[in-house]
Design a binder for these strands. Structure first.
Length: 501
RNA sequence: GGCGGCGUAGCUCAGUCGGUAAGAGCACUCGGCUCAUAAUCGAGGGGUCGUCGGUUCGAGUCCGACCGCCGCCA
């Protein structure tokens, strides 16, 4: 029986359109999912859209649409973006689907039945954009500190979640070691809990665009509690207990640091309240900055995936966001850095290696691939690079993994320089070094497939191999010496044409 | 105000339990090669490892203070 691996992105709010910040998170989750498939694990990769809440209701009104129509339109844009980027999600969940209402109802009812939810009256200053209450001292010049917009005084009967009862259990959960990563982010979660948790309001009566509270239908759940539960919905919570039990222990949430509090405090506590286990792991990454500034609609500095795909291709796009920034800290995006990374790693190293090898095989071997040597100097290089690559992916560090894989490419280029097969007469010496280079390319095609699925599939084809690199299984496929030789090598056009700065 | 983090080559960063002569990629300089997408390979320059003090036979690596930057919370 193979292991299971469940990985999620946040579900994206339909008041936003997909930009490279969303894509950053999604591409990381996708590449990790693809890696785990290579490991022959049973993978379930989930993304989707968050469609309830007052903001959606109001935006729809402004557009003269029903909330559902508005959500349908924007949700479709996310699905289009992920299709463009070759995202391999197994499911796409929408919080307006019936299955989600079923799960939310079941999970919150369980928390209610367990005595963790109670009714109280709340009056406070409310920011519609945040869908959150503020203390007077939190305001800046009387305005919401985030949106710089006026707040409204609201008085509501709300249902409250007894978050304060879960401090000890949350702290114990963080202590399990790798529940929240990186470590710095876990410390933030610990800090939030240590300072004491207040119970939180989880329902609204002021709006209708949401999922009704089952025991009090005048209320709908506050959008966050609705949204988080999507992760449980998608694996059958409330409808297929067996399925849920199979997948839930393996869930890994990939999120940006802006929603750390929801995923590492509120969400595990709600799960505990319902009698379920907290997530297996939450992986928190930093922001993608543009020229040092946070990306935002108001700053007019948003960048959309399609614009970059036009210049760099899907693989160029994916590779850049996986390789350029270490997972965890904030990263800065710049077009110049993207060009440099593309030209350096993809065009000069990988693409050019394939070109030169194919050409020399054409000239010295009549285009027929020789087999690698069992005792090639590249064999130990591949062995250590594979281990480092696997470790990098295992800890959600794509940049580390790819750096390790690229070491094979560098060494293969160096081996060619040393042997200079283009100078030698055809024969065993030439065959040996070219066979080694082809085998290095075969293995790189497998290891890099999670990041650049199109290019590696093309390499696979040009090497005359059957199937695709994504269908291979690790670690077997990374073992040196499996390239059979005898195939006709296809010298094609440059895989990654250089981009002029 | 409380808690936490960061400050290592021009740039982006690695540096596990303190100990082989401080590293990688990119950039730069020089040289080789000309199979390849002016790609590639080799060599080299460049760092008082933020500052000061302490522990130690020995500290980028531990402790304290300070300077600078940042995050979370209030």
């Amino acid at each position: 029986m193979s292991d299971r691996f469940y990985v999620t992105t946040p579900i994206y709010y339909v008041n936003d359109v997909p930009h490279i910040g969303h894509a950053y998170t999604t591409v990381i989750a996708d590449a990790v999912a693809r890696w785990h498939r290579l490991l022959d694990e049973d993978v379930f990769f989930l993304t989707g859209t968050d469609e309830h809440g007052l903001k959606v209701q109001r935006s729809a009104e402004e557009r003269g649409l029903t909330p559902q129509q508005h959500a349908d339109a924007t949700s479709a844009r996310f699905r289009e973006a992920w299709a463009l980027l070759d995202i391999s999600n197994d499911d796409f969940i929408r919080t307006t689907e019936d299955r989600h209402a079923v799960a939310v109802t079941a999970l919150m009812q369980a928390a209610y039945d367990n005595g963790h939810i109670y009714k109280d009256t709340y009056e406070g200053l409310y920011c519609v954009s945040c869908e959150a209450y503020y203390q007077p001292e939190d305001l800046v010049d009387g305005l919401c500190p985030i949106h710089k917009r006026p707040v409204e005084t609201l008085r509501e009967e709300n249902w409250f979640f007894r978050l304060s009862a879960f401090e000890d259990r949350l702290l114990a959960w963080y202590e399990t070691g790798d529940a929240v990563l990186p470590e710095g982010k876990r410390n933030e979660a610990v800090g939030i809990v240590r300072q004491g948790l207040r119970d939180i309001s989880i329902s609204r009566t002021s709006i209708s665009w949401g999922i009704p509270v089952p025991w009090d239908p005048d209320h709908v759940f506050y959008v966050w509690y609705d949204a988080l539960i999507n992760y449980a919905t998608a694996v059958g919570y409330g409808s297929d207990r067996e399925r849920f039990d199979a997948w839930w222990p393996t869930v890994h949430h990939v999120i940006g640091k802006d929603i750390l509090r929801f995923h590492t405090v509120y969400w595990p506590a709600v799960l505990m309240a319902a009698g379920e286990a907290p997530p297996r792991q939450v992986q928190v990454h930093g922001f993608l900055l543009i020229g040092g500034e946070k990306m935002s609609k108001t700053a007019l500095n948003q960048i959309f995936p399609a614009d970059l795909v036009e210049d760099f291709g899907v693989d160029g796009f994916r590779y850049h966001f996986l390789r350029e920034n270490p997972f965890g800290p904030d990263g800065d995006f710049s077009y110049e850095a993207m060009v440099a990374r593309y030209n350096g790693d993809l065009a000069n190293n990988l693409g050019n290696l394939l070109s030169r090898v194919a050409t020399v095989v054409g000239k010295k071997c009549g285009g027929v691939a020789p087999a690698p040597r069992a005792d090639s100097p590249l064999a130990p290089v591949v062995e250590s690079a594979y281990e480092a690559t696997a470790e990098g992916w295992a800890r959600f560090a794509p940049s580390v993994a790819l750096e390790a894989t690229w070491r094979i490419i560098r060494e293969a280029n160096a081996l060619l320089e040393e042997a200079e097969p283009w100078k030698a007469e055809p024969g065993p010496e030439v065959d040996a070094v070219l066979g080694d280079a082809l085998e290095a390319l075969r293995i790189v095609a497998v290891l890099a497939a999670p990041a650049v699925p199109h290019a590696t599939t093309e390499i696979w084809r040009r090497l005359g191999l059957a199937g695709t690199p994504g269908e291979q299984r690790l670690p077997e496929a990374a073992r040196w010496g499996q390239y059979p030789g005898g195939a006709t090598i296809d010298t094609g056009a440059p895989l990654f044409p250089r981009i002029k700065a």
